[in-house]
Design a protein around this nucleic acid. Structure first.
Lengths: 119, 119
DNA sequence: TCAACATATTTATATATTTGAATATACTGA
DNA sequence: TCAGTATATTCAAATATATAAATATGTTGA
């Protein structure tokens, strides 16, 4: 279908609207849009939500997460990298162990809200 | 690697922790986990975020969104179905046009926060 | 130095998602 | 009824994601 423009053809209730809404709020540019989408994507996996919840009260190393979440090590490692790249957690080496920490502890309350579907 | 249990082998700072964290908060079951992940997935796409933002102040029909977002009709239709299935928007037929409405207007404020990275 | 372990990385495979053209369906006014 | 338009659906292709086994890397204690 050819590119659609409102001026020719589609013209529903437009006279009742001052103008079409903006696609984004003021002060939100396209970079923020893509950044936001990518953070939400990092949060949109059940295993990753569990990981973040498990880190709310204390840091955990990968082997503790393996025990807690009952997932294989390589699977958890992949999810941890995704969360790290999204800027949500960071690793802290201590001996053999790699402890992961929430970078933004507020994410805990955020997750409470979405888990209880309070938007 | 064999399934890992904390009791044999990995035993980091565990004596300093009363017990491992739960993977999920109290009162949040596995269904809520999957439901939450799937709503966040619906929100984790730039075009879908734009659609939701564009619906904050008034309903729009698909052809208006085509004009506003400059995306082909079939692409928008797909995204609209995803948002509808996630329970975020609903259609309202009026003549030839299909107006979409935010089911939970609070989602607007929610999007403001995540777009500004306020978690 | 070496064995044992913790973790990251590589690799493969299965599955899901995104995109958009093409087509089908539905509504409206003539 | 028919032509024009709005929208949904089908289909195909490209791309991304999830999972986990296998392997590599790094650390520790003996």
């Amino acid at each position: 279908m050819k590119k659609h423009v409102i001026e020719d053809g589609c013209n529903p209730d437009i006279e009742n609207k001052k103008e079409l809404n903006k696609a984004l709020p003021e002060n939100v540019d396209e970079d923020a849009l893509y950044e936001t989408a990518s953070i939400l994507k990092a949060l949109s996996d059940p295993t990753r939500i569990q990981i973040l919840c498990s880190l709310r009260n204390n840091d955990l190393c990968v082997c503790e997460m393996m025990s807690l979440l009952e997932k294989p090590q390589s699977t958890l490692s992949h999810h941890l990298i995704i969360l790290k790249n999204a800027g949500l957690i960071k690793p802290r080496k201590k001996g053999v162990w790699n402890y992961y920490t929430l970078i933004r502890p507020e994410i805990g309350k955020f997750l409470d809200n979405v888990l209880l579907e309070k938007f």
